[in-house]
């Protein structure tokens, strides 16, 4: 079986919108929304603030959940790519290398320093918790996949989207790469649907997802 070849259906994959967060810069469909050069916590807060979304809980999330929340937020805006899709037909495929290690490390550091760890920190020590945060924020009830990989695997993301769209009856999928560890954060998210006119280009996506700096 050739990976990334729509094995579950003959319909093509269509990307409706893309967001990229990398080293303090956040862009939506190529338009820069925020730029910051402080430490990671400052940069994430600045990117979130730029979107003017009311979410008191944001400051209490772990960094991984903040990154995922930022990367997905534009899709849920009034004119966002997901605004017209039913919440129970929106799926998620999120891939990353380090999972929850950023928070795992903070949890261990706190245990060693204070001989106890915050329950509020403990609940974030799972790789898929950020997807749960996103589901709670936006009332999503669709299927989801959390994948770990050394690097963005575009064919595997394609196949995972295909499965959610066709086998799980999703109408749209939030598909992307989210990785945060040791003071560095990057995320590339897309809204993917199925249709006759596809625009999924493995080579182009390899370039976008693996761009650094």
């Amino acid at each position: 079986m050739q990976r990334g070849s729509s094995f579950a259906s003959m319909e093509a994959m269509r990307i409706l919108s893309t967001t990229i967060y990398r080293n303090g810069r956040f862009s939506v469909d190529g338009k820069e929304l925020a730029r910051s050069a402080g430490d990671l916590d400052h940069d994430l807060t600045k990117a979130w603030t730029a979107m003017e979304v009311e979410l008191p809980r944001f400051v209490r999330m772990d960094r991984s959940s903040k990154l995922v929340s930022i990367a997905a937020a534009p899709f849920f805006a009034a004119d966002g790519a997901l605004s017209k899709y039913p919440k129970d037909r929106i799926g998620m495929v999120i891939m990353g290398t380090h999972g929850s290690m950023d928070t795992d490390q903070r949890y261990l550091d706190q245990l060693e320093a204070e001989n106890h760890a915050s329950p509020g920190l403990f609940v974030y020590t799972l790789p898929n918790i950020a997807m749960g945060e996103l589901s709670i924020q936006h009332g999503l009830h669709g299927s989801g996949l959390c994948l770990l990989s050394d690097a963005p695997d575009i064919p595997q993301l394609h196949d995972a989207c295909d499965i959610l769209l066709h086998d799980h009856d999703m109408e749209a999928v939030i598909c992307g790469w989210s990785n945060i560890f040791a003071g560095s954060a990057e995320a590339t998210f897309m809204v993917v649907t199925a249709g006759k006119e596809g625009n999924w280009d493995n080579d182009e996506l390899e370039r976008i997802f693996n761009e650094h700096g």
């Binding site: 008191p56 106890h116 915050s118 329950p119 509020g120 609940v123």
Partner: peptide, 16 residues
């Protein structure tokens, strides 16, 4: 507007 996780934090706060 606190939630169930916050209760755990409050329990730790009162103890510590």
């Amino acid at each position: 507007g606190l939630d169930s996780i916050d209760v755990l934090e409050l329990i730790v706060l009162m103890d510590k």
